[in-house]
């Protein structure tokens, strides 16, 4: 199953990137090579560089790009004069820029900037105000470029994430080792066994996996993610000791995973902090609904896991993926 979903993600991603790019190329959605008329208000003029503001009427902009921007544009612009007399311009793209320009800047030579040449520059009757015609650099294959960049970025992100776990892992696996040696995990196991018997029938009654599972679930319920992950991995290690077929998940592992993915947390601290920071009148209104949602998720997940584990397709001996 994981094989198919993995391939699915990759195939859908690349084919939709190719499809979108070809569509835009054919329709010339970014108006490559076409001129756009604008007004230029010069504020400073050095020998090779001039800065000022570029103004574009919304009607002209919308006609050019077939968009529906609702206000006239006014953006800072930098104009430089090449030795051969050609004037080049650069416009910084930020959050207030029109959507289509933001999109185009992702495929531009310099990220967050659009540049190009000024093909015509006429002085108006007022000093320092010009009518200019700009030709933005050719923009193409944006989606494929971002897919390419994403492969590098996310591969690096994965390593950063994993390395970031080293410290916290080492700490908690050390603490857990003490608890294990002292017999604390065994004691905890006997205490909670009546509750966990139904969920994990395959685990022997005094196995330390149970204690690790319970500690992981309690930690994640309290929102202590830094402690929950090492405990969860400790639980996986213990569960793997009971595994007779290395490399294949056991029923208990799947059940444990599903409990974790439903993310039952009593206080969703991150969301609360963001809501409070954004000035919510009642940030805490989402606590009870979130618990409800997570209980729905956990219940559905546990039912699903118990039904699916009986299906022929997911049997250990019959496992094709």
């Amino acid at each position: 199953m994981l094989n198919y979903i993995w391939v699915g993600l990759i195939v859908i991603a690349i084919s939709s990137a190719i499809g979108t790019d070809i569509y835009r190329e054919v329709n010339n959605s970014y108006q490559n090579g076409k001129e756009l008329e604008a007004t230029y208000l010069q504020t400073s003029n050095l020998r090779e560089e001039a800065t000022g503001k570029i103004q574009i009427q919304k009607d002209k902009f919308n006609e050019h790009y077939k968009t529906s921007t609702s206000s006239n544009l006014e953006l800072p612009i930098l104009i430089s004069k090449e030795p051969n007399g050609i004037r080049k311009f650069t416009i910084d793209i930020n959050n207030n820029s029109p959507e289509i320009w933001k999109e185009m800047s992702q495929g531009a030579l310099n990220k967050e900037k659009l540049s190009g040449v000024i093909s015509e520059m006429l002085l108006t009757e007022t000093e320092n105000i010009f009518i200019i015609k700009i030709k933005i650099e050719n923009i193409s294959y944006i989606k494929l470029k971002s897919v390419t960049n994403a492969t590098f970025d996310y591969a690096a992100t994965a390593v950063t994430l994993a390395l970031g776990l080293i410290g916290i892992m080492a700490l908690w696996l050390g603490i857990m080792k003490i608890a294990e040696e002292a017999g604390f995990l065994k004691i905890l196991t006997t205490v909670v066994r009546p509750i966990t018997k139904k969920l994990f029938p395959d685990i022997p009654h005094d196995h330390p996996a149970i204690a690790a599972i319970v500690m992981n679930i309690s930690a994640s319920m309290l929102g202590l993610n830094n402690a929950a992950t090492p405990m969860g991995l400790k639980a996986m290690e213990e569960l793997n000791k009971l595994n007779t077929k290395i490399g294949t998940a056991t029923n208990s592992m799947c059940t444990f995973l599903v409990i974790n993915t439903s993310g039952l947390t009593l206080i969703p601290a991150t969301v609360l902090a963001i809501r409070a920071a954004m000035g919510s009148a009642n940030p805490g209104i989402i606590i009870a609904p979130s618990i409800f949602g997570a209980i729905c998720a956990a219940t559905a997940g546990l039912i699903a896991v118990k039904i699916l584990q009986r299906m022929k397709r997911f049997q250990i001996s019959n496992n094709i993926d």
């Binding site: 793997n240 799947c254 995973l257 979130s290 998720a297 997911f314």
Partner: peptide, 22 residues
Amino acid sequence: ITKTRHALPAGLIADLFGMLGA
């Protein structure tokens, strides 16, 4: 472990119901 069996489908069902519950 690379052969994850029913963990992913069950996890996604849990997500779906979490969203519906919300």
